[in-house]
Design a protein around this nucleic acid. Structure first.
Lengths: 112, 112
DNA sequence: CTATCTTTTAGACAGTTGTCGAAGTAGGAG
DNA sequence: CTCCTACTTCGACAACTGTCTAAAAGATAG
């Protein structure tokens, strides 16, 4: 498991390099459209969604959606594959888990 | 507990309004300097840190650090108080937990 | 009151980002 | 081969962001 790159954010000071790496991931999700895209892809039946399923939910042009998907893909949060006419996208769970690990552990130390 | 504002990101499609609200929070942490600041504050002994403790760790001017702290504070992730000469900052755990709740639940459904 | 130290505000500027329209690429249908 | 549909790339532009310097504001010491 390489999910945990670094200690939870409030456990110990984040190293400069880890912070830089995580910021890339966070910048990718720090946008309402991309958050919704990620959510729509991740929650879609079968674990993957076609671009055609995604575009209609927004008042944005296809190029803009494509741009946002590229940002998410470049960050390593999703991956895609063309199958015939359509392009399908799915989530890369380890990347999402890494973000979760950063922010959740607040609850744990409180019990001690 | 108002920690959980919305279902985990891959559970169901995020509502437009929730996405907008969460993006504000995420934009605030999507910066290497702010990530490190948040981490330094959260992991500091006593649960709070003086600005003077934070500034020296960066190759940045005091106004720049102040700006980043303001961004975090405006987003509701930290709060501050002046005590005599110094200003102290601390983390608002519910805000951080909210981010954790968004991304972690990937692990849970797997056990069922 | 003046001097000094800590932190914030204000203004400026380069660099990045979200969006669009237009054009390009890739499959499938006739 | 030609057309149509699905998606991506390109180039442009307004808006936002991170950083700085200069100056202000708050608190304490002399």
């Amino acid at each position: 498991m390489t999910v945990q790159c670094c200690a939870p954010i409030v456990r110990e000071p984040l190293a400069e390099s880890d912070a830089a790496e995580l910021a890339v991931l966070l910048k990718a999700v720090a946008d309402p459209v991309r958050l919704r895209l990620l959510s729509m892809i991740g929650s879609h039946a079968g674990g993957e969604a076609c671009v055609c399923d995604l575009t209609d939910a927004f008042d944005l042009t296809a190029p803009t959606i494509s741009h946002h998907l590229k940002v998410l893909r470049t960050a390593g949060l999703i991956d895609s594959e063309r199958r015939g006419t359509w392009v399908y996208y799915w989530i890369i769970p380890s990347a999402v888990n890494r973000l979760g690990a950063l922010f959740t552990p607040l609850a744990e130390p409180a019990t001690t």
